[in-house]
Computed example of a mutant assay.
Amino acid sequence: MDRDAEATKERLLEAAIMEFAAHGLAGGRAERIASQAQCNVRMIYAYYVGKSGLLDAALAQALRHMAESVPPRSKDLAGWAGDVFDHHQRFPEVLRLSMWAQLERPEAAATLSEAYRSRTLAVATAAAHPLSAIDVLVFIYALAQAWQLSPEGLTSLEENAGGEEAIAARRYAVVIAVERMLQVGACGEGG
Rank of each mutant, 00 (worst) to 15 (best):
Q148I: 00
Q148F: 13
Q148Y: 05
Q148R: 15
L149S: 04
L149K: 13
L149Q: 08
L149M: 14
S150N: 12
S150G: 04
S150Y: 14
P151Y: 06
P151C: 05
P151H: 14
E152V: 15
E152A: 15
G153Q: 00
G153A: 02
G153L: 05
G153Y: 01
G153H: 04
G153P: 08
L154G: 03
L154P: 11
L154C: 09
T155F: 09
T155P: 01
T155K: 04
T155R: 05
S156I: 02
S156L: 00
S156W: 00
S156Q: 13
S156Y: 02
S156K: 11
L157Y: 12
E158L: 15
E158N: 15
E158H: 15
E158D: 15
E159L: 15
E159P: 12
E159C: 14
N160A: 13
N160I: 03
A161H: 13
A161T: 04
A161V: 01
G162L: 01
G162Y: 11
G162P: 06
G162A: 07
G162T: 11
G162C: 01
G163V: 13
G163H: 01
E164P: 12
E164Q: 09
E164M: 07
E165I: 13
E165C: 02
E165G: 03
E165A: 13
E165K: 02
E165N: 09
E165W: 05
A166C: 11
A166I: 11
A166E: 02
I167L: 12
A168R: 00
A168I: 04
A168Y: 04
A168K: 00
A168L: 07
A168Q: 02
A168C: 05
A169Y: 06
R170Y: 02
R170T: 08
R170C: 11
R171W: 05
R171H: 05
Y172N: 14
Y172S: 11
Y172K: 15
V174G: 12
V175E: 01
V175G: 01
I176M: 11
A177W: 07
A177E: 01
V178M: 01
V178G: 01
V178W: 05
V178P: 07
E179I: 08
E179Q: 06
E179Y: 04
E179L: 03
R180C: 11
R180S: 07
R180E: 05
M181S: 07
M181Q: 00
M181N: 06
L182C: 12
L182T: 06
L182F: 05
L182M: 14
L182R: 04
L182K: 13
L182N: 02
Q183Y: 04
Q183K: 14
Q183R: 15
V184Q: 07
V184Y: 13
V184L: 09
V184K: 08
G185H: 12
G185T: 13
G185Q: 01
G185N: 11
A186E: 10
A186H: 07
A186Y: 00
C187R: 11
C187L: 10
C187F: 10
C187H: 07
C187G: 00
G188I: 02
G188M: 10
G188E: 06
